[in-house]
Design a protein around this nucleic acid. Sequence first.
DNA 1: GTGAATAGTTTGACAATCGAAATATAGCAT
DNA 2: ATGCTATATTTCGATTGTCAAACTATTCAC
Lengths: 151, 151
Amino acid sequence: MNEPATTFNFEETNRELVEVFTNVMWVEERALNKGPFSDLSVKEVHTIDAISMYEQKSASEVAKLIHLTPSAMTTAIDRLVEKGYVERCRSKRDRRVVELVLTHAGRVVYRAHQEFHRGLTHSLFEDMSANQINTLQRAIHSLKIYLVSLI
Amino acid sequence: MNEPATTFNFEETNRELVEVFTNVMWVEERALNKGPFSDLSVKEVHTIDAISMYEQKSASEVAKLIHLTPSAMTTAIDRLVEKGYVERCRSKRDRRVVELVLTHAGRVVYRAHQEFHRGLTHSLFEDMSANQINTLQRAIHSLKIYLVSLI
DNA sequence: GTGAATAGTTTGACAATCGAAATATAGCAT
DNA sequence: ATGCTATATTTCGATTGTCAAACTATTCAC
Protein backbone atom coordinates (compact mmCIF):
# COMPACT_ATOMS: atom_id res chain seq x y z
CA MET A 1 0.00 0.00 0.00
CA ASN A 2 2.02 2.93 1.27
CA GLU A 3 5.53 1.73 0.49
CA PRO A 4 7.90 4.31 -0.98
CA ALA A 5 8.48 3.79 -4.70
CA THR A 6 12.09 2.69 -4.47
CA THR A 7 13.35 0.27 -7.10
CA PHE A 8 14.21 -3.30 -6.21
CA ASN A 9 17.90 -3.98 -5.83
CA PHE A 10 18.23 -7.75 -5.75
CA GLU A 11 22.01 -7.74 -5.34
CA GLU A 12 21.95 -5.34 -2.42
CA THR A 13 19.13 -7.16 -0.64
CA ASN A 14 20.80 -10.50 -1.23
CA ARG A 15 23.99 -9.11 0.27
CA GLU A 16 22.15 -7.94 3.36
CA LEU A 17 20.43 -11.28 3.73
CA VAL A 18 23.73 -13.15 3.46
CA GLU A 19 25.16 -10.80 6.04
CA VAL A 20 22.25 -11.53 8.38
CA PHE A 21 22.56 -15.29 7.95
CA THR A 22 26.29 -15.44 8.39
CA ASN A 23 26.37 -13.07 11.34
CA VAL A 24 23.39 -14.00 13.52
CA MET A 25 25.40 -16.64 15.33
CA TRP A 26 28.29 -14.33 15.95
CA VAL A 27 26.02 -11.51 17.13
CA GLU A 28 24.24 -13.95 19.39
CA GLU A 29 27.58 -15.05 20.84
CA ARG A 30 28.57 -11.44 21.44
CA ALA A 31 25.23 -10.51 22.99
CA LEU A 32 25.52 -13.60 25.17
CA ASN A 33 28.99 -12.80 26.44
CA LYS A 34 28.04 -9.26 27.36
CA GLY A 35 25.27 -10.64 29.56
CA PRO A 36 25.36 -12.78 32.70
CA PHE A 37 25.81 -16.07 30.83
CA SER A 38 29.33 -15.61 29.59
CA ASP A 39 30.20 -19.15 30.62
CA LEU A 40 28.02 -20.44 27.77
CA SER A 41 28.69 -20.71 24.04
CA VAL A 42 25.94 -20.21 21.47
CA LYS A 43 25.95 -23.92 20.78
CA GLU A 44 25.35 -24.66 24.43
CA VAL A 45 22.47 -22.16 24.47
CA HIS A 46 20.96 -23.83 21.42
CA THR A 47 21.17 -27.16 23.23
CA ILE A 48 19.37 -25.62 26.19
CA ASP A 49 16.78 -24.20 23.81
CA ALA A 50 16.25 -27.61 22.22
CA ILE A 51 15.80 -29.25 25.61
CA SER A 52 13.09 -26.65 26.24
CA MET A 53 10.98 -26.06 29.28
CA TYR A 54 7.58 -27.57 28.73
CA GLU A 55 8.11 -31.11 27.49
CA GLN A 56 10.38 -33.83 28.78
CA LYS A 57 12.87 -34.62 26.05
CA SER A 58 15.24 -37.54 25.80
CA ALA A 59 18.89 -37.11 24.90
CA SER A 60 18.40 -38.62 21.46
CA GLU A 61 15.39 -36.41 20.70
CA VAL A 62 17.47 -33.34 21.46
CA ALA A 63 20.37 -34.75 19.44
CA LYS A 64 18.09 -35.10 16.42
CA LEU A 65 16.75 -31.57 16.81
CA ILE A 66 20.17 -29.99 16.70
CA HIS A 67 21.69 -32.52 14.31
CA LEU A 68 24.25 -34.03 16.63
CA THR A 69 25.42 -37.62 16.92
CA PRO A 70 24.58 -39.38 20.19
CA SER A 71 28.19 -39.28 21.31
CA ALA A 72 28.47 -35.55 20.73
CA MET A 73 25.21 -35.14 22.62
CA THR A 74 26.66 -37.00 25.59
CA THR A 75 29.61 -34.65 25.90
CA ALA A 76 27.41 -31.59 25.28
CA ILE A 77 25.16 -32.66 28.14
CA ASP A 78 28.18 -33.44 30.32
CA ARG A 79 29.28 -29.82 30.00
CA LEU A 80 25.82 -28.41 30.70
CA VAL A 81 25.37 -30.66 33.73
CA GLU A 82 28.84 -29.66 34.93
CA LYS A 83 27.92 -25.98 34.57
CA GLY A 84 24.63 -26.50 36.34
CA TYR A 85 22.13 -25.76 33.56
CA VAL A 86 20.79 -29.26 32.95
CA GLU A 87 20.01 -32.40 34.91
CA ARG A 88 20.05 -35.98 33.69
CA CYS A 89 17.28 -38.32 34.88
CA ARG A 90 17.00 -41.92 33.82
CA SER A 91 13.42 -42.48 32.67
CA LYS A 92 11.36 -44.75 34.90
CA ARG A 93 9.38 -46.19 32.02
CA ASP A 94 12.47 -47.12 29.97
CA ARG A 95 15.65 -47.12 31.94
CA ARG A 96 17.83 -46.82 28.83
CA VAL A 97 16.43 -43.36 28.19
CA VAL A 98 17.93 -40.20 29.66
CA GLU A 99 15.34 -37.48 30.25
CA LEU A 100 16.80 -33.99 30.24
CA VAL A 101 15.49 -31.20 32.43
CA LEU A 102 16.63 -27.61 32.80
CA THR A 103 17.69 -26.41 36.22
CA HIS A 104 16.56 -22.99 37.42
CA ALA A 105 19.59 -21.39 35.75
CA GLY A 106 18.85 -23.37 32.61
CA ARG A 107 15.31 -22.02 32.49
CA VAL A 108 16.59 -18.47 32.85
CA VAL A 109 18.92 -19.01 29.87
CA TYR A 110 16.07 -20.58 27.91
CA ARG A 111 13.85 -17.55 28.43
CA ALA A 112 16.67 -15.12 27.62
CA HIS A 113 17.33 -16.93 24.35
CA GLN A 114 13.66 -16.85 23.45
CA GLU A 115 13.68 -13.12 24.14
CA PHE A 116 16.70 -12.61 21.88
CA HIS A 117 14.83 -14.14 18.98
CA ARG A 118 11.58 -12.38 19.78
CA GLY A 119 13.61 -9.18 19.48
CA LEU A 120 14.84 -10.15 16.02
CA THR A 121 11.36 -11.04 14.87
CA HIS A 122 9.94 -7.88 16.36
CA SER A 123 12.52 -5.77 14.51
CA LEU A 124 11.29 -7.33 11.27
CA PHE A 125 7.62 -6.56 11.85
CA GLU A 126 8.05 -3.17 13.42
CA ASP A 127 5.94 -0.39 11.90
CA MET A 128 4.22 -2.65 9.40
CA SER A 129 0.62 -2.51 8.29
CA ALA A 130 -1.59 -5.57 8.48
CA ASN A 131 -1.08 -6.21 4.78
CA GLN A 132 2.66 -5.88 5.08
CA ILE A 133 2.74 -8.19 8.07
CA ASN A 134 0.93 -10.72 5.99
CA THR A 135 3.40 -10.45 3.14
CA LEU A 136 6.29 -10.87 5.51
CA GLN A 137 4.76 -13.82 7.26
CA ARG A 138 4.26 -15.51 3.94
CA ALA A 139 7.83 -14.79 2.83
CA ILE A 140 9.30 -16.28 5.99
CA HIS A 141 7.16 -19.33 5.54
CA SER A 142 8.29 -19.88 1.96
CA LEU A 143 11.90 -19.37 2.99
CA LYS A 144 11.50 -22.09 5.59
CA ILE A 145 9.85 -24.39 3.06
CA TYR A 146 12.64 -23.72 0.59
CA LEU A 147 15.28 -24.58 3.18
CA VAL A 148 13.54 -27.84 4.01
CA SER A 149 13.38 -28.64 0.29
CA LEU A 150 17.17 -28.46 0.08
CA ILE A 151 17.78 -31.17 2.64
CA MET B 1 -2.73 -5.45 -1.62
CA ASN B 2 -3.93 -8.94 -2.46
CA GLU B 3 -2.74 -10.81 0.61
CA PRO B 4 -5.20 -13.27 2.10
CA ALA B 5 -6.81 -11.95 5.28
CA THR B 6 -5.13 -14.37 7.68
CA THR B 7 -4.46 -13.18 11.21
CA PHE B 8 -0.94 -12.52 12.40
CA ASN B 9 0.53 -15.28 14.52
CA PHE B 10 3.66 -13.80 16.05
CA GLU B 11 4.62 -16.94 17.95
CA GLU B 12 4.35 -19.17 14.92
CA THR B 13 6.28 -16.80 12.67
CA ASN B 14 8.91 -16.32 15.33
CA ARG B 15 9.30 -20.08 15.59
CA GLU B 16 9.78 -20.40 11.84
CA LEU B 17 12.32 -17.61 11.83
CA VAL B 18 14.30 -19.21 14.66
CA GLU B 19 14.19 -22.46 12.74
CA VAL B 20 15.55 -20.71 9.66
CA PHE B 21 18.34 -19.01 11.56
CA THR B 22 19.44 -22.07 13.47
CA ASN B 23 19.27 -24.38 10.48
CA VAL B 24 20.68 -22.40 7.54
CA MET B 25 24.22 -23.43 8.39
CA TRP B 26 23.30 -27.05 8.75
CA VAL B 27 21.29 -27.05 5.51
CA GLU B 28 24.16 -25.33 3.75
CA GLU B 29 26.51 -28.00 5.05
CA ARG B 30 24.20 -30.75 3.81
CA ALA B 31 23.69 -29.13 0.41
CA LEU B 32 27.45 -28.72 0.17
CA ASN B 33 28.23 -32.33 0.96
CA LYS B 34 25.78 -33.61 -1.63
CA GLY B 35 27.64 -31.59 -4.27
CA PRO B 36 31.17 -31.86 -5.63
CA PHE B 37 32.76 -29.94 -2.74
CA SER B 38 32.31 -32.47 0.01
CA ASP B 39 35.88 -31.90 1.16
CA LEU B 40 34.84 -28.46 2.45
CA SER B 41 32.98 -27.40 5.59
CA VAL B 42 30.57 -24.47 5.59
CA LYS B 43 33.08 -22.43 7.56
CA GLU B 44 35.70 -23.06 4.93
CA VAL B 45 33.25 -21.97 2.24
CA HIS B 46 32.54 -18.80 4.18
CA THR B 47 36.25 -18.12 4.36
CA ILE B 48 36.46 -18.56 0.59
CA ASP B 49 33.49 -16.23 0.23
CA ALA B 50 35.17 -13.61 2.40
CA ILE B 51 38.38 -13.80 0.38
CA SER B 52 36.20 -13.09 -2.67
CA MET B 53 37.15 -12.87 -6.30
CA TYR B 54 37.42 -9.25 -7.26
CA GLU B 55 39.59 -7.54 -4.67
CA GLN B 56 42.89 -8.59 -3.18
CA LYS B 57 42.38 -9.14 0.51
CA SER B 58 44.96 -9.57 3.22
CA ALA B 59 44.74 -12.34 5.81
CA SER B 60 43.84 -9.91 8.57
CA GLU B 61 41.12 -8.24 6.49
CA VAL B 62 39.49 -11.63 5.93
CA ALA B 63 39.92 -12.50 9.60
CA LYS B 64 38.02 -9.35 10.58
CA LEU B 65 35.23 -10.06 8.10
CA ILE B 66 34.51 -13.48 9.52
CA HIS B 67 35.36 -12.58 13.12
CA LEU B 68 38.35 -14.84 13.57
CA THR B 69 41.55 -14.14 15.46
CA PRO B 70 44.67 -13.87 13.29
CA SER B 71 45.98 -17.16 14.59
CA ALA B 72 42.77 -18.99 13.71
CA MET B 73 42.94 -17.35 10.30
CA THR B 74 46.41 -18.77 9.74
CA THR B 75 45.29 -22.33 10.31
CA ALA B 76 42.09 -21.80 8.30
CA ILE B 77 44.19 -20.64 5.37
CA ASP B 78 46.63 -23.51 5.89
CA ARG B 79 43.77 -25.95 5.31
CA LEU B 80 42.46 -24.13 2.26
CA VAL B 81 45.92 -23.92 0.73
CA GLU B 82 46.43 -27.61 1.51
CA LYS B 83 43.16 -28.45 -0.25
CA GLY B 84 44.02 -26.27 -3.20
CA TYR B 85 41.37 -23.56 -2.97
CA VAL B 86 43.55 -20.62 -1.93
CA GLU B 87 47.05 -19.29 -2.52
CA ARG B 88 49.18 -17.21 -0.20
CA CYS B 89 51.23 -14.39 -1.73
CA ARG B 90 53.43 -12.07 0.28
CA SER B 91 52.58 -8.53 -0.73
CA LYS B 92 55.32 -6.74 -2.62
CA ARG B 93 54.45 -3.35 -1.15
CA ASP B 94 54.55 -4.57 2.45
CA ARG B 95 56.21 -7.92 2.92
CA ARG B 96 54.54 -8.52 6.30
CA VAL B 97 51.18 -8.78 4.57
CA VAL B 98 49.80 -12.02 3.13
CA GLU B 99 47.53 -11.43 0.13
CA LEU B 100 45.01 -14.21 -0.43
CA VAL B 101 43.85 -15.31 -3.85
CA LEU B 102 41.44 -18.01 -4.89
CA THR B 103 42.67 -20.75 -7.18
CA HIS B 104 40.48 -21.91 -10.05
CA ALA B 105 38.78 -24.42 -7.73
CA GLY B 106 38.36 -21.68 -5.15
CA ARG B 107 36.60 -19.44 -7.65
CA VAL B 108 34.23 -22.27 -8.58
CA VAL B 109 33.30 -22.70 -4.90
CA TYR B 110 32.91 -18.95 -4.52
CA ARG B 111 30.40 -18.80 -7.36
CA ALA B 112 28.51 -21.87 -6.14
CA HIS B 113 28.15 -20.32 -2.70
CA GLN B 114 26.89 -17.06 -4.20
CA GLU B 115 24.35 -19.09 -6.15
CA PHE B 116 23.20 -20.89 -3.03
CA HIS B 117 22.35 -17.59 -1.39
CA ARG B 118 20.81 -16.14 -4.52
CA GLY B 119 18.50 -19.16 -4.42
CA LEU B 120 17.48 -18.39 -0.83
CA THR B 121 16.84 -14.76 -1.64
CA HIS B 122 14.96 -15.67 -4.77
CA SER B 123 12.70 -18.04 -2.83
CA LEU B 124 11.81 -15.14 -0.55
CA PHE B 125 10.84 -12.77 -3.35
CA GLU B 126 9.16 -15.29 -5.58
CA ASP B 127 5.65 -14.37 -6.74
CA MET B 128 5.64 -11.00 -5.03
CA SER B 129 4.15 -7.79 -6.33
CA ALA B 130 6.26 -4.64 -6.54
CA ASN B 131 4.73 -3.37 -3.31
CA GLN B 132 5.38 -6.61 -1.54
CA ILE B 133 8.95 -6.70 -2.75
CA ASN B 134 9.40 -3.28 -1.29
CA THR B 135 8.00 -4.31 2.06
CA LEU B 136 10.27 -7.29 2.18
CA GLN B 137 13.32 -5.33 1.17
CA ARG B 138 12.63 -2.85 3.94
CA ALA B 139 12.12 -5.61 6.52
CA ILE B 140 15.42 -7.28 5.66
CA HIS B 141 17.16 -3.95 5.93
CA SER B 142 15.74 -3.22 9.38
CA LEU B 143 16.66 -6.72 10.52
CA LYS B 144 20.24 -6.10 9.46
CA ILE B 145 20.28 -2.74 11.20
CA TYR B 146 18.87 -4.31 14.34
CA LEU B 147 21.57 -7.01 14.33
CA VAL B 148 24.28 -4.38 13.99
CA SER B 149 22.75 -2.44 16.88
CA LEU B 150 23.21 -5.46 19.15
CA ILE B 151 26.97 -5.64 18.69
C1' DG C 1 14.65 -67.16 28.08
C1' DT C 2 17.42 -65.83 23.81
C1' DG C 3 18.66 -62.76 20.18
C1' DA C 4 18.00 -58.49 17.92
C1' DA C 5 17.14 -53.75 18.41
C1' DT C 6 17.54 -49.40 20.95
C1' DA C 7 19.54 -45.55 24.12
C1' DG C 8 23.28 -43.88 25.77
C1' DT C 9 28.33 -43.80 27.09
C1' DT C 10 33.30 -44.34 26.44
C1' DT C 11 37.28 -43.96 23.81
C1' DG C 12 40.47 -42.32 20.39
C1' DA C 13 41.12 -39.23 16.82
C1' DC C 14 40.83 -34.92 14.50
C1' DA C 15 38.78 -29.81 13.30
C1' DA C 16 38.45 -25.28 14.94
C1' DT C 17 39.28 -22.11 17.99
C1' DC C 18 41.73 -18.91 21.32
C1' DG C 19 45.52 -16.26 23.81
C1' DA C 20 50.32 -15.56 24.51
C1' DA C 21 54.79 -15.52 22.82
C1' DA C 22 57.73 -15.42 18.78
C1' DT C 23 59.14 -13.71 14.14
C1' DA C 24 59.55 -10.61 10.45
C1' DT C 25 58.96 -6.30 8.47
C1' DA C 26 57.99 -1.30 8.29
C1' DG C 27 58.41 3.32 9.50
C1' DC C 28 59.81 6.91 12.45
C1' DA C 29 63.13 9.64 15.22
C1' DT C 30 67.36 10.63 15.92
C1' DA D 1 72.45 4.00 9.72
C1' DT D 2 70.53 2.49 14.51
C1' DG D 3 67.35 1.60 17.44
C1' DC D 4 62.49 1.80 18.98
C1' DT D 5 57.79 0.96 18.24
C1' DA D 6 53.95 -0.61 15.67
C1' DT D 7 51.93 -4.03 12.55
C1' DA D 8 51.05 -8.70 10.14
C1' DT D 9 51.46 -13.11 10.57
C1' DT D 10 52.93 -17.52 12.59
C1' DT D 11 53.83 -20.91 16.21
C1' DC D 12 52.58 -23.16 20.37
C1' DG D 13 49.74 -25.10 24.05
C1' DA D 14 45.23 -25.62 25.71
C1' DT D 15 40.31 -26.22 25.13
C1' DT D 16 36.04 -27.31 22.69
C1' DG D 17 33.14 -29.66 19.47
C1' DT D 18 32.73 -33.20 16.65
C1' DC D 19 32.62 -38.03 14.73
C1' DA D 20 32.96 -43.24 14.29
C1' DA D 21 33.50 -47.54 16.49
C1' DA D 22 33.28 -50.37 20.35
C1' DC D 23 30.85 -51.14 24.56
C1' DT D 24 26.98 -51.43 28.33
C1' DA D 25 22.45 -51.66 29.77
C1' DT D 26 17.82 -52.29 28.75
C1' DT D 27 13.79 -53.56 26.18
C1' DC D 28 11.12 -56.07 22.81
C1' DA D 29 9.64 -60.00 19.80
C1' DC D 30 9.39 -64.50 19.60
